[in-house]
Write a protein that binds this DNA or RNA. Structure first.
Lengths: 106, 106
DNA sequence: ACATTAATTGGCAATTTCGCCAAATAACAA
DNA sequence: TTGTTATTTGGCGAAATTGCCAATTAATGT
């Protein structure tokens, strides 16, 4: 039996949230510990409004949490398994290169 | 040290490939075993050309392999860990619902 | 109250993705 | 060769995503 359309869309929303270079970089950074928006902005280099929008998208997907302390907002990763997630992505990449551009084959 | 821009783009390419309802559904189907394009077309219901394009995108990302036998092309999942990958996505969703719409809280 | 710093939101143009149709290609049978 | 079935490719309009600027909101200090 197929998964409900709605459920699939929720899943896709989570995956989409990770499917952007800046957001992926921020998620990896957050895996090491919480950060304020300003730190993430320095890391990414885009306009702060752009970074903020990326972050709210991540939050909306359920990937991060926020904690406002004073003027700053601290973001933290909600689900640690995202790291394993990336492990799988790396595996796809290594197997891909292994086959398509095998350095041992001439 | 941050991951190279190029590497990050490769990763994103893989994640993006999974970030679509039809493609995600097909990947899950393929996790059970290989399928021809026609079977996947029936599963998804979109025009066959649309399905074919989704599949070539998956292939380009390194997620699936193809095997042409006669007139048909059989697709198969290249990396089994994609299943675990989805496990993490599910975890994100369950924790999300747990907090935002906690049934125990009034 | 006023200024300052941190972050979010609205709006918009540029780019990318999506899905259909029509046409092309490939394998095989008659 | 001709026809048939399976799949891919080209092209195009529609929809979604992206990133900047400007304006707004929020917390704090003077």
């Amino acid at each position: 039996m197929a998964i409900s359309e709605k459920r699939q869309l929720e899943r896709v929303k989570v995956i989409k949230a990770l499917a952007h270079p800046s957001r992926l970089t921020m998620v990896e950074k957050l895996a090491e510990g919480e950060c304020c928006v300003c730190d993430l902005q320095k890391l990414i280099g885009d306009d702060i409004s752009t970074v903020s929008k990326h972050l709210s998208l991540l939050k909306n997907a359920g990937l991060v949490d926020t904690d406002k302390r004073g003027v700053q907002v601290f973001y933290s990763l909600r689900v640690p398994c995202v790291t394993d997630f990336l492990g799988c992505v790396e595996k796809v990449l290594s197997e891909k290169n292994e086959k398509s551009s095998c350095s041992k084959c001439k």
